[in-house]
């Protein structure tokens, strides 16, 4: 029996972007307000999962042609690189630094090396969650 997904698909197209925007927002806001790499990553993953539910896995793979295993590996590397970068500056492993910058469009913003680490966390969370779901979903 072919089910009628039109409503779900139409809604998904809109909702996915809202979730993704929210994920990005919550990720960047994480240092000052609730949020961060974990939540941001999970939200992003859930947006993609929603897409997969509304359409199907091959379609979503075509839209987002990312190898999630590589993605998590990249995330891990970023995290480790950020952590070990401090050695180069002759401070103990995992020392973070931050400063305030005046950026156009954003006004005064603080930039953190911790954010780089959080990007690593974000990528790993998205990568692993999607790896798990995609692998199970594709299994016949």
């Amino acid at each position: 029996m072919r089910t009628n997904d039109v409503m779900l698909q139409t809604a998904t197209k809109v909702v996915t972007f809202i979730i993704l925007m929210f994920a990005v927002h919550i990720f960047f806001a994480g240092h000052y307000t609730p949020g961060g790499g974990f939540v941001g990553g999970l939200l992003t993953a859930s947006a993609i999962v929603l897409l997969m539910l509304a359409f199907d896995i091959p379609t979503v793979k075509k839209i987002i042609p990312i190898n999630y295993v590589v993605l998590s590996a990249v995330g891990l590397l970023i995290a480790i690189a950020t952590a070990s970068a401090s050695i180069v500056f002759d401070v103990p492993f995992f020392t973070h630094a931050y400063d305030y910058f005046d950026l156009p469009l954003f006004g005064e913003t603080s930039l953190h090396s911790a954010l780089l680490f959080d990007i690593g966390v974000y990528l790993v969370v998205v990568g692993v969650t999607m790896t798990i779901i995609q692998t199970i979903g594709e299994d016949e």
Partner: peptide, 27 residues
């Protein structure tokens, strides 16, 4: 640490090692 959200700062800065290993376990 230059942050506001204590939980997140603990995760990425104070106890970053835990998080590093945790995402390794995830992987």
């Amino acid at each position: 640490a230059g942050g506001g959200n204590i939980v997140n700062v603990i995760l990425v800065d104070y106890r970053g090692f835990d998080t590093l290993f945790e995402i390794a376990v995830l992987g």
